[in-house]
Amino acid sequence: MDDLRLLQQAGREIPLATPDQLAPARDRLLAAMTTTPATPTTIRREARRGWRFVFGGVAAAGVAAAIVSVLVLAPDRVGGDLPAARADASQVLRNAAAAALRLPDATPRPDQFIYTRTQEGKETRESWLSVDGTRDGLVRTASADGGSNSVLPGCRDGRAAVVKGDQVLPGRTEPCTLEPGYRSDLPTDAAAMGAYLTENRSGEPGSVNSAGKDVYYFAGAYLRPRTRAALYEAAATVPGLRAVENVTDGAGRPGIGIAWPSTGRSGEMILVFEPESYAFLGVSGASAVLDLAVVDKVGQTG
């Protein structure tokens, strides 16, 4: 089950619906987006497995399956047939939301793993994250200088095995916080997602660059279609974004970029989307998501 390949195929094979066909769904969406959102349920932000993994592209990713009803925004509202290079940032993100909703939908089982293969510079990483967080996962790295394996101990009843290098120390445990590889508690509409991102932001209020990092964190995670679409729709309302032509992700794949400006020394961050399918590729010049799948065991790749 490869989410990237399925999204690319769906983007080429499934035609956009006409504006008349989509008018009722579009009206419901616009009504929902202009309604004052209720106070979101507080959801604890999971302790992240090191920001280098997150912003290097190692994140759980999506698997494709089938959704009963599809909302595709009309071409005149989201860019539609308009080439990505001529679209503005809001159009690109809304196109990505529409493409996400064309993906099939499936929920991974608690005993499965989210498999991700990513690239950061010359280093390739593979990760197997326990869907429910209770089973031992693994991160495997490879580069010209060699490679390494790191066990990610599952958290069971508040305790996890103690790991030294790639070895689990028998009989030794330590306190832990459950970190599921799949988040089933995220909002599925744009207004609620926007409220969630505001409530659980990682940076200072009003920091567009920090908001971009939060969007990147979730864009690289396994999300079901409605949640992914809600993420991109919420991102489309962020002011100050711009579309960037002729960018490449960390693996050199070309795409259309969304630049998140920064007033600090870190500079702007550019999220890269495939220009035909609008699949999320990674961060310009930094990282790339190469393979995404839900698998049954550690070591399986699809």
Rank of each mutant, 00 (worst) to 15 (best):
M1V: 14
D2Q: 09
D2W: 02
D3Y: 15
D3G: 12
R12S: 11
E13D: 13
P15L: 09
D20P: 03
L22M: 15
A23M: 11
A25E: 12
R26Y: 15
L30H: 12
L30I: 15
A32H: 12
M33S: 08
T34C: 11
T36S: 04
G50H: 11
W51Q: 11
R52A: 14
F55T: 08
F55V: 09
G56S: 11
A59D: 06
A66D: 11
I67K: 08
V70K: 15
V70Q: 13
L71R: 14
L71C: 10
P75T: 13
V78S: 15
G79H: 07
L82M: 14
P83G: 06
A87Q: 10
S90D: 00
L93V: 01
A97T: 10
P104F: 04
T107P: 00
P108T: 04
P110D: 13
D111N: 14
Q112Y: 00
I114E: 13
E120P: 00
E120N: 10
E126Y: 10
S127V: 03
D132T: 03
T134D: 02
R135E: 10
D136Q: 05
V139G: 00
V139S: 02
D145H: 06
G146K: 03
G146S: 02
S148R: 09
N149M: 00
P153T: 06
G154H: 02
V162A: 01
K164S: 12
G165Q: 04
D166F: 01
Q167I: 03
V168I: 09
G171N: 05
T173R: 07
P180R: 01
Y182S: 03
L186D: 07
A191Q: 05
A191M: 09
G194A: 11
L197H: 06
T198M: 07
G203F: 00
S210A: 13
A211W: 06
G212T: 02
G212W: 00
D214C: 04
Y217L: 13
F218D: 13
A219Q: 09
L231M: 02
L231S: 06
Y232M: 12
Y232K: 09
E233W: 07
A236N: 04
A236R: 01
G240H: 10
G240Y: 09
G240P: 10
A243G: 07
V244G: 05
V247C: 08
T248M: 06
P254M: 08
S262I: 00
R265V: 01
R265I: 00
S266H: 07
S266W: 03
S266M: 08
G267P: 02
G267N: 01
M269Q: 11
L271Y: 07
E274D: 14
E274P: 08
P275Q: 08
F280I: 04
V283R: 11
A286E: 14
S287G: 11
A288W: 10
V294I: 14
D296K: 08
G299L: 03
T301D: 08
